[in-house]
Design a protein around this nucleic acid. Structure first.
Lengths: 118, 118
DNA sequence: TCAGTATTTCAAATTATCTTAGAATTTCCG
DNA sequence: CGGAAATTCTAAGATAATTTGAAATACTGA
């Protein structure tokens, strides 16, 4: 690693024990991938709106449909993205599937919507 | 809003002052859009790795290139995404551009990498 | 001014994500 | 059980994001 970089940066790195040490202390590829999955799931207004609504109120798909104003199939796609990234969970209750936030979903809901929780 | 929804959900909504009230208390479209921009910028492993490295150490592009192991143009694209979403900031120093985290970038860095900051 | 280095920009090709229509499933109720 | 109504899923095409490599820009020092 005999890279040509500005002196002050090189010195700062040496003080921290070298580049190798810094890199070793960073989160693993797997951890970063997991975070990236959640964040990209959160990176969409429709899904954030859904998250914020579920933060206040567990809901069937038919009510969510009216809240976000989408077709069933389009909403269903976004719910599946959120489910796969572990933000929400759907539980079958008779004719309906009731979606609610997982603990991870609640954490991010707080970050976005403030403290008001179900 | 005479939607056919499960009774317990309808009752829960009434207790909270009705659907209209719940919707009014949610973050605005604009706020959600801003959050979505940041989250989709975070939704990529390359960018998270960059964020975590900058969390420890401000850096020129040439060093980052070795850290994330990408071509200049590919890295440059990801840096521009992060810059546009307000996570990082580049300052020209002679021949180099030194990137560092903005306050927003530091906030998310903490969420991902734990407490260790520059 | 000129050569050299660091970084960005552009446009085309590729890849991932989103949307839509409609099919399939599930439940309700006679 | 069988048909209707409501809900959910699937797969294609449409849209958006990413990658690539070449060319452009901006600065430095001789």
């Amino acid at each position: 690693m005999s890279l040509k970089i500005p002196d002050n940066i090189r010195e700062s790195i040496e003080k921290k024990g070298g580049l190798k040490k810094i890199l070793e202390e960073m989160p693993s590829e797997r951890e970063l991938q997991e975070h990236a999955n959640v964040y990209s799931s959160l990176g969409d207004v429709i899904r954030l709106k859904t998250l914020c609504f579920l933060c206040n109120q567990s809901s069937c798909v038919c009510l969510l449909k009216d809240v976000v104003n989408l077709s069933y199939s389009r909403l269903s796609y976004h719910l599946s993205v959120m489910k796969n990234s572990g933000l929400i969970n759907g539980e079958k209750k008779g004719n309906y599937i009731i979606y609610s936030l997982t603990p991870i979903g609640k954490k991010y809901c707080r970050e976005i919507c403030g403290g008001n929780e179900e």
